[in-house]
């Protein structure tokens, strides 16, 4: 259960990697920092409303309101960050037809820049954002205890992913995304504004990271300037595991990684968690080099 919950957060962040990769063939390393900024923004917004980790929140209405506000704030902040990175760092490179390596280094640079900026600004101190909901066991199926936060995290994550999936597959703009992913030049000939679509992809990916950030705060109540690093790495692995560039793959990969990691740490002890996660990745890629569900965003459902 914990695994599913953690996997859901991985999957939401993984969506950002997958979307950007699917369209741009670019691994957006700065995405982990987009997530990190989301965690800070939700905390700050709650802080401005006078809510900190020591406030007691009792009424359900207030909880729901705070979560919705946090969700919107986190998603907005992350989307803005993602778009800023795209406009400031990637777009000029694309205009100059820079080689892929330049994009890669820029992505890593942007990631470090954002992390360090927040690090300096927050004096690198760890923070405990309010968790809003006190975890409590909601119901139990045999030995598995299911807590209220777990239900919330899973529900919100699945809802978001379903919405995104529908958006990409059904809507007009979603069609545009798929078209650009398949063949940017032909798409441009068909009258699709490539830059607009790319911007949209960053907005969507960023918003998903923002939602993940809110869920992270509710679940762990912790953030720090480098909180994005490990989760970014895990989410990227999840994306690769499921087949990078494939939305449903990101979901599957995220959940699988979360479950396997937690199962392993329950079985062998906590220190084996990351070990097992990455062994799984390596072994799986040996047999399915393009990930569980195959690669391309466009090709998968053209």
């Amino acid at each position: 259960m914990t695994g599913l919950e953690q996997g859901a957060i991985y999957a939401l962040v993984a969506l950002g990697y997958t979307l950007v990769y699917g369209v741009l063939r670019l691994i957006n390393f700065a995405h982990s920092e987009v997530f990190m900024i989301g965690t800070f923004t939700t905390m700050w917004v709650w802080g401005w409303m006078g809510i900190d980790q020591n406030t007691k929140i009792d009424s359900v209405g207030q909880m729901v309101m705070l979560i919705v506000i946090g969700l919107v704030a986190g998603a907005a902040a992350s989307a803005v960050t993602a778009v800023t990175v795209e406009v400031v760092a990637y777009r000029p490179l694309r205009r100059r037809n820079a080689p892929p390596l330049a994009f890669l280094i820029t992505a890593i640079g942007a990631s470090l820049f954002l992390a360090e900026m927040i690090g300096i600004f927050t004096k690198r101190a760890p923070f405990g954002p309010p968790r809003i909901i006190e975890p409590a066991v909601a119901f139990a199926i045999g030995p598995f205890k299911v807590t209220n936060t777990q239900i919330l995290v899973l529900l919100v994550a699945l809802l978001m992913m379903a919405a995104l999936d529908q958006f990409v597959n059904r809507s007009r703009m979603g069609k545009g995304i798929r078209a650009v992913a398949q063949d940017p030049d032909t798409a441009a000939l068909m009258g699709i504004n490539k830059n607009r679509i790319i911007l949209l992809v960053f907005v969507l990916g960023g918003a998903m990271a923002g939602v993940a950030a809110l869920l992270w705060n509710v679940r762990y109540g912790f953030t720090k300037f480098n909180v994005g690093f490990l989760i970014g790495l895990k989410a990227f692995s999840a994306a690769v595991l499921g087949g990078i560039g494939n939305l449903r793959g990101a979901l599957l990969g995220g959940l699988l990684l979360g479950v396997v990691e937690n199962y392993a740490s329950g079985l062998f002890g906590g220190e084996w968690k990351d070990f097992t996660g990455f062994v799984l990745l390596v072994i799986l890629l040996m047999f399915r080099p393009t990930g569980l569900l195959g690669e391309s965003l466009g090709r998968a459902r053209a």
Partner: peptide
């Protein structure tokens, strides 16, 4: 640097 301590 671990953040998830749910198993333990």
């Amino acid at each position: 640097k671990q953040t998830d301590f749910s198993a333990i």
